[in-house]
Design a protein around this nucleic acid. Structure first.
Lengths: 104, 104
DNA sequence: CAGTTATATGCCTTGACAGGCATATAACTG
DNA sequence: CAGTTATATGCCTGTCAAGGCATATAACTG
């Protein structure tokens, strides 16, 4: 966990992860996806790499990035005790849950 | 979601939330729990309030804070599509999962 | 009301990070 | 090798938030 949350706090990095959910992508492809400058995307990718949220593979001239879910698994685990809470106290919370505000 | 991640990125704020999982606590009690200065704790509480992660109740001279899990529910929802990923590709990942690195 | 406890706020400094731009590095092409 | 494409890095700047310290606010006590 630890700094994974900090890394995820950056919206463009989340965009990158979202894009990578569909499969591997080169840096160029990601630049198009998230609409940022190439250097910026590269920097974000570096940060994502440092916390093992992504993985690189060299493919000739390109670097192909891939999502690595492990840190998210840990985040999921961190969430667990809290999950217990809202499952316990599903007072009028249950109603709130089905209101459907899933995305950010 | 949105800035909830940013709020959670701060370790002391997570400490506060952890403490509140056991039940309501006054500011003074939280100061003892997390070992920060009172002004700092109050500021963190303000941030937590702003994203509805906590709730205040006035009790005479004290302010009693309570955890509000709703934003975490949304975080949980945000995680969902990723969860699909690691559930799908439980190649050697399953092994990794049971290695037990749950906390941060 | 004066004093004290509990909490919040304001100001200030410092450090970190995002983002822009230029440039380095590396592979591929003729 | 010269040129081009793909990606990473370095430097610089602005912004913003954490944290410290002092102080304001509010309730409680005698």
């Amino acid at each position: 966990m630890v700094d994974v949350l900090e890394v995820l706090a950056e919206p463009r990095r989340r965009r990158i992860l979202d894009a990578l959910r569909q499969g591997e992508l080169s840096v160029g492809a990601l630049v198009e996806e998230v609409g940022s400058s190439q250097p910026l995307v590269s920097k974000h990718l570096r940060v994502l790499r440092e916390v093992s949220l992504v993985d690189v593979r060299v493919d000739g001239q390109r670097r192909v990035y891939r999502l690595r879910p492990e840190p998210l698994v840990e985040l999921d685990a961190w969430l667990e005790p809290y999950r217990q809470l809202w499952r316990t106290s599903l007072d009028r919370l249950e109603a709130h849950l089905s209101e459907g505000k899933p995305d950010a």
